[in-house]
Design a protein around this nucleic acid. Sequence first.
DNA 1: GGTTTGACCCTAA
DNA 2: ATTAGGGCCAAAC
Length: 118
Amino acid sequence: MADDEGNISARILNAVKNIPRGYVASYGHIAALAGSPRAARVVGWTLGALPPETDIPWHRVVNKDGYITIENLSYPKEEQARMLEAEGVLVQRREGLLQIDRNQFGWKGRGEAGLEKK
DNA sequence: GGTTTGACCCTAA
DNA sequence: ATTAGGGCCAAAC
């Protein structure tokens, strides 16, 4: 591929772009696909540096609990939830925080939708 | 070049 | 089951 695989940021962005529409992936999962399962923080950091006109579906990336962890950054949590709803993902409002049904929208990692048993 | 922070995750008590 | 603390990788000061 013509992507810069030497840069972990590029791999992270590539993994995020790989997320199918209507599904959400966790930071740790994206980091694992990027090659570092423990670099979940780097994922959020890289996404935070993305421009508003980016083609990266950063709104499809949530934490392990399925909650949006934007807090007070460039964009409010409502913005991400709004985009997710536009994608077909149901966002539940809980105590001011936004949660997504990882049981249904939790991306497995390769387009194969479903919940893995633990 | 060392220190601190960060859109997190995991393990232990 | 819940709460607390440490760890990880990378960039900014």
